[in-house]
Design a binder for these strands. Structure first.
Lengths: 146, 146
DNA sequence: ATACAAGTTCAAGTCGACTTGAAGTCAAGT
DNA sequence: ACTTGACTTCAAGTCGACTTGAACTTGTAT
């Protein structure tokens, strides 16, 4: 496949694909002149990368988790990541419940509502300085890898 | 409280507190000379902000969700955010299961393992272009807001 | 009264993850 | 032969969330 096909199939712009290749996250299987050629399995790899990104892993972390191919994944690392996700899931769940409660509760100030405070407390464990957003740039160019 | 106390109590550096004030996320209750004075409830506010951050909301989004004080939270917005979190939780759960499976499974290539592929598929819905990492700068200066 | 640690402002820098722009290459259609 | 459009490289730009540095001010302790 050429880069445009991969872009279409993955929903990622060609610039991102080049960037990922440069970072060593994906590999082109060859060139036709200057043009990169990709084998079809790059799509699965990109799915995995997107997934990892949306689970909050950095590209570098993802690079450590997925290998050029085959086994040799670091099982210990994977399990550690899974535990990290578990904590994050708990946090998000509390946050979600907190939001739903805040939308429903009509206490004048949520900080006076014991229910809300309890939710906060639960979620407040394992807090982390986070770097960034989660915005509206979903599903660029309409593609979806099903 | 002066800025150092707030910093200590919240675990956030003073620079961040100034930055948050500039963004309108928190407010100092006055000045003593040049120095900012904060009332104690800023801590709760910061807890909420940290929580929102770690749930993946941007500072701007958080700014829309928490108001200077009192009611007037946008319930519709809150519920929408809660739904967004629900989707993210599902995704993270699938990712976590995928990781645990990958660590356990000894198929030569995970893309040939139907179990793994199914997990991928589940998680692959609602994918989003994410911006950033989730790193090791947890719990700066040892403070924890209980 | 003087020192000084801790506060302040404002501009600029950093980091990750991309995106954009300029300038060049090349296969295919007319 | 020539245009065109999709590709290429490489450098620089952008965005959010802070951080850092330089230069300045001030409350408190001596």
């Amino acid at each position: 496949m050429d880069i445009a096909e991969v872009a279409k199939a993955s929903g990622l712009p060609a610039s991102t694909l080049r960037f990922y290749e440069e970072k060593g996250l994906i590999h082109s299987s060859g060139r036709s002149g200057l043009r990169r050629l990709f084998s079809a399995n790059v799509i699965e790899r990109l799915t995995l990368i997107s997934l990892g990104r949306s689970a909050g892993f950095s590209l570098d972390e993802i690079g450590e988790m997925i290998t050029p191919e085959g086994p040799d994944i670091n099982r210990t690392l994977l399990l550690a990541k899974a535990d990290e996700l578990d904590r994050k899931i708990k946090e998000l769940t509390a946050m979600r419940d907190g939001l739903r409660h805040a939308a429903a509760c009509n206490a004048p100030n949520h900080f006076e509502c014991p229910k809300f405070l309890r939710l906060l407390r639960v979620a407040g464990k394992n807090r982390v300085r986070q770097p960034n957003k989660l915005k509206d740039n979903k599903l660029k160019r309409g593609a979806q890898l099903t």
